[in-house]
């Protein structure tokens, strides 16, 4: 259908283009910033429904609620940009937090060293998934599905199924400094790091090339395998940070922490405008996606909507957000 119509869009612009272009511009803005527009509409709707929504306290609450999923989703963004998927982030978050708690508690490591162990755990798990994908030729879905199970299993092995108190520095990450909640600070820092990697590092730009057309990237001399290992390693580190924040908030590492969070992280990335087909995705979009999810949960809580219905509504939001995205791509 598109082969014979290739020239028509430009040709159509000639007559009566003025009315059309204004409307088209608005449509363009909405579809280009669909997630942001959606988030603003949601906030206004929540404010109208319940004025409690727009209090500083509640907004900080939204930030805290968004933080863990957002950090996971930042890591996931690298992977999605390369046309991959990381299903293991929830489990890796739990394992990393557990390792930090375990090394601090049982091995008596200093808190900062324990934290480092946690981060290295995430890095290692991510590198393994990346190597399995890049060198072992496993599809990312399978490699990270395996890691999901392995990491969760190891979490249970390490903890023996029992929560472990977190080292002091991790607990501090879950607390607040003055009025500012630390999870929100970590969220901002990790977002900035993610943005910097994707936009300023050559390997970040290479991620877009690999996701857009792996073979073209390879033939241009881009080290595709290194890029792939890197994105999963980053996803692992970001998952570790998310896991540390989550355990810090609870002051203990839970064996079943962050179960199912990989799907929230995926939803945030996709709502943020990234394409599972690869080559597209922004940290800012992912942040908005995570905030959309958090605002919906928060608002529905304030409105006393049951948790069961919340799931239904979040599902609809994902479908609508991605539907808009698909329509936009068709037009482009």
């Amino acid at each position: 259908m598109s082969n014979t119509q290739g020239t028509t869009p430009t040709a159509q612009k000639a007559p009566g283009a003025d009315i059309k272009s204004t409307r088209a511009k608005i449509a363009d803005f909405i579809s280009d910033n669909g997630a942001l527009v959606g988030l603003l509409v949601l906030c206004v709707a929540m404010f109208i429904a319940t004025p409690d929504f727009l209090t500083p306290n509640n907004l900080l609450n939204v930030g805290i609620q968004a933080s863990v999923v957002a950090i996971l989703a930042f890591g996931q963004t690298f992977v999605i940009v390369t046309a991959g998927i990381d299903l293991s982030v929830g489990s890796v978050a739990a394992l990393s937090a557990m390792v930090a708690a375990f090394t601090g508690q049982s091995w008596g490591m200093p808190p900062l060293v324990a934290l480092l162990f946690g981060l290295l755990t995430g890095l290692g798990a991510g590198m393994l998934s990346g190597a399995a994908t890049a060198y072992g030729k496993l599809p990312p879905f399978i490699a990270t599905l395996a890691m999901l199970s392995i990491a969760r299993g190891l979490t249970l092995v390490v903890s023996n199924g029992i929560p472990i108190p977190t080292p002091s520095v991790v607990t501090w990450l879950g607390g607040s400094v003055g009025p500012i909640p630390m999870p929100v600070v970590v969220l901002v820092v990790m977002g900035a790091i993610g943005w910097f990697i994707l936009n300023r590092l050559s390997i970040g730009r290479a991620m877009y090339a690999v996701g857009g057309n792996l073979e073209a990237a390879r033939l241009s001399g881009i080290p595709v395998k290194r890029v792939l290992v890197t994105v999963y390693a980053l996803s692992g580190i970001f998952a570790a940070v998310a896991g540390l924040v989550l355990s810090g908030r609870l002051a203990s590492a839970q064996p079943q922490a962050a179960t199912g969070y990989e799907l929230d992280a995926l939803a945030a990335v996709v709502i943020g405008g990234a394409s599972l087909a690869g080559g597209v995705g922004r940290i800012s979009g992912t942040l908005i996606g995570a905030l959309v999810l958090a605002v919906i949960r928060n608002g529905l809580n304030l409105l006393n909507v049951s948790a069961f219905w919340q799931q239904v509504i979040i599902g609809l939001v994902i479908a609508v957000a991605v539907g808009i995205d698909v329509l936009r791509r068709k037009r482009a």
Binding site: R200, L201, S202, I203, G204, R205, A206, G221, I222
Partner: peptide
């Protein structure tokens, strides 16, 4: 992209 980068920066 890769060869012209310095310290990994584009």
């Amino acid at each position: 992209l890769m060869s012209s980068a310095r310290y990994g920066l584009v």
